[in-house]
């Protein structure tokens, strides 16, 4: 197929892409919204939303999701920014960056599964602290273990955009800052940090939104409790088969996501994300 005119060429580009847009972007969102707003007979109803907002459990769960996602993002950011900054000063920085990315190629489930072994009551961590004379702790199925594993999974996705935005900063600016009398710390705070803001925002997006909807880690590490919106949706779709309520929670999750997007909008370009 050899398009001749410009119009034909445009069609050639756009037809498969448009089919994708309609079928896999519009349709699923519309269907989700439709599910949440109808009864099984197809009549309009706000019943599902009423159930959601009247239930203390769901509201608490929503708060929990946001709170955990916030903590995960914060921990990840605090570990990742210095890492990205220091990596950027290494000679073979591209090589070290690849080593940061490499763990993301190991299947997510396998890594999570490793933590089950590490953290279990007779696992390696407990054996280790046992050597220090501390009695075995219940590490698995706690909020801490959930935060630890989630942060572990997300760290590369925070480092990557921050590293990229740091690498894009003209090294001349750091020189100029020193030249004007600023020491390393002042340069970091007044020049490097503001200029790497787009990377930080991209990193927050890449970590916060997936963290809102984690369900696999919650199930395996967090002790199979339904504590986040992600777990609730999975529960309703795949266990209790209450798609309408599941869709309602989904719509609420989307709204939360849009709010985050607006808050971290400006100039975000390269974003990478994690599925989990």
């Amino acid at each position: 197929m050899m398009p001749k005119s410009k119009k034909q060429r445009q069609l050639f580009y756009v037809v498969p892409y448009s089919i994708w847009l309609i079928l896999f972007v519009f349709a699923p969102l519309v269907l989700l919204l439709f599910q949440s707003l109808t009864t099984s007979n197809g009549d309009f109803t706000l019943h599902n939303y009423a159930v959601y907002f009247a239930s203390g459990t769901y509201l608490k769960m929503t708060f929990n999701s946001v709170w955990y996602a916030f903590l995960i993002t914060l921990i990840t950011l605090l570990i990742s920014y210095p890492t990205a900054y220091l990596l950027n000063q290494l000679k073979q920085k591209q090589f070290w960056l690849l080593l940061v990315i490499l763990p993301t190629w190991i299947n997510l489930l396998l890594k999570t599964y490793a933590f089950v072994g590490l953290l279990s009551k007779t696992g390696t961590v407990n054996n280790f602290i046992g050597l220090l004379g501390i009695a075995p702790q219940q590490l698995l199925f706690s909020d801490w273990s959930f935060l630890l594993v989630a942060a572990y999974i997300e760290i590369p996705f925070m480092i990557l955009p921050i590293f990229n935005s740091l690498a894009e900063i003209n090294p001349r600016l750091e020189q100029a800052s020193h030249d004007l009398g600023a020491n390393k710390w002042q340069t970091l705070r007044r020049v490097i940090l503001p200029l790497s803001m787009p990377g930080i925002k991209a990193g927050i997006q890449a970590v916060f939104i997936p963290s809102l909807s984690l369900f696999m880690i919650t199930r395996l590490i967090g002790g199979n409790r339904v504590i986040t919106l992600g777990t609730a949706i999975e529960e309703h779709f795949l266990v209790t088969q209450n798609w309408r309520l599941g869709s309602t929670i989904g719509v609420i999750l989307i709204v939360a996501m849009v709010i985050i997007m607006i808050l971290t909008r400006d100039r975000v370009r390269k974003s990478s994300r994690k599925r989990g």
């Binding site: 939104i209 909807s213 919106l229 949706i233 989307i254």
Partner: peptide, 10 residues
């Protein structure tokens, strides 16, 4: 930017 759960469910 959609959470996976939403993509999966929808």
């Amino acid at each position: 930017v959609s959470p996976d759960v939403i993509i999966g469910a929808s």
